[in-house]
């Protein structure tokens, strides 16, 4: 009897330990939030601005584009690859959409009767997503069929896309005036809620990404490919085809990010995304969120948390008036720490 009691106690402890282990990333997130709040309370008036609705709204809006890129890039990482070209895709689609919409350039919207402007916007959106899909198919084919290392393949396409983005606008920013187009990114679709539409796009992308990951054959195949590519082939998975789709998904997410960049800032610049190193932030967020660089491990809720952690750090360091240089140092440490932790957890025996 006594023995049973202890074993029950041990069991309870083990369940708690397992919960803590599975959700350690969220505990870390809570820790970071508490720490930042404490520091803010310590040095700054008004207290608790960090947790105020205003600030949280800012934070959510700020993290949207990088967040969308993160959900995109987690797939290549899961498949044991990488995609460095996401920010360059942002630049291309930002400049492309701006050029299509702008008054001085193509001015697509003005060529349509006003009641059909939604159609114009739809055309712009689908053009950009198609460009994204094309870039993804290019990257994916390079990786899958020529067996070029994904790092090199996407590094190459990054340079190509940077060139394209500058060619589109002649290296100058292009402003847009269309409120209908801006609404996609900076509009507020729910009256009374201060969150902008770009945040809801993030939510949609997370839902689709999570669905792909856990509820579809595709997701299941990507896990297998990342875990053991040869075994995946022997198990009858069309490895090459799936890898192409992985990169298409990633670049389409990035293309959406580019659209939202133009729509929310009101201008498309050839340095959109690139200047802020969005691609690295996205890879960092996915990694912090437990997506294993050695492939085969990823969880959507981990990635959500990774996005939040990176956003909180960016936001907090900003409003605490810490210089960007120190921000970089802190971010670097957090990423390395996360990867070291991840490697210990997923130490492969395979």
């Amino acid at each position: 009897m006594e023995k049973e009691d202890t074993s029950k106690k041990i069991n309870g402890f083990l369940i708690f330990a397992k919960f803590a282990k599975d959700n350690v990333i969220w505990l870390a997130f809570v820790g970071i939030v508490l720490f930042v709040t404490a520091v803010a309370w310590f040095i700054r008036q008004p207290p608790l601005f960090f947790l105020s609705v205003t600030n949280i709204t800012i934070l959510f809006n700020q993290m949207s584009i990088v967040g969308i890129l993160t959900v995109g890039v987690m797939f290549p990482i899961l498949s044991r690859g990488i995609d460095l070209s996401t920010s360059a895709v942002v630049a291309v689609t930002a400049t492309l959409s701006a050029t299509l919409v702008s008054d001085v350039k193509v001015n697509l919207l003005a060529k349509l009767p006003p009641e059909l402007s939604w159609l114009g916007i739809l055309i712009v959106v689908f053009t950009c997503l198609a460009v994204g899909a094309l870039v993804g198919a290019f990257n994916g084919s390079l990786v899958a069929y020529t067996k070029i290392h994904p790092f090199v393949a996407t590094l190459g396409s990054t340079l190509i896309l940077k060139g394209v983005a500058n060619l589109i606008t002649n290296a100058a920013p292009v402003g847009i005036k269309s409120d209908a187009f801006k609404f996609i990114g900076s509009g507020k679709i729910i009256p009374g809620v201060p969150l902008t539409n770009q945040f809801f796009w993030l939510v949609i992308v997370i839902i689709i990404g999570g669905f792909l990951l856990t509820q579809t054959r595709f997701g299941s195949n990507v896990f297998a490919i990342g875990g053991n590519e040869v075994a995946a082939k022997v198990a009858g998975i069309r490895v090459e085809r799936n890898i192409v789709w992985v990169y298409i998904w990633c670049s389409c997410c990035a293309a959406l990010g580019g659209l939202l960049y133009t729509a929310s800032t009101g201008a498309g610049t050839p340095t959109a995304g690139i200047a802020g190193s969005y691609e690295l932030d996205a890879i960092a967020a996915a990694t912090v969120g437990g997506t294993s660089q050695t492939g085969g491990v990823a969880k959507i809720n981990g990635v959500i948390c990774g996005i939040l952690i990176l956003a909180v750090i960016n936001n907090a360091l900003g409003f605490l008036n810490i210089t960007p240089y120190i921000q970089w140092i802190i971010k670097g440490c957090i990423i390395i720490g996360a990867v070291v932790f991840d490697m210990r957890k997923n130490a492969k025996k395979v």
Binding site: R217, N221, F223, A224, G227, N228, A232, I237, G296, V350
Partner: peptide, 19 residues
């Protein structure tokens, strides 16, 4: 090398070829 997916669950390994 060519058979198991060590990181995936027993269940997932069982159904992967028939997914």
């Amino acid at each position: 090398g060519k058979g198991i997916f060590g990181l995936l669950s027993v269940a997932r390994n069982t159904v992967i070829s028939n997914i």
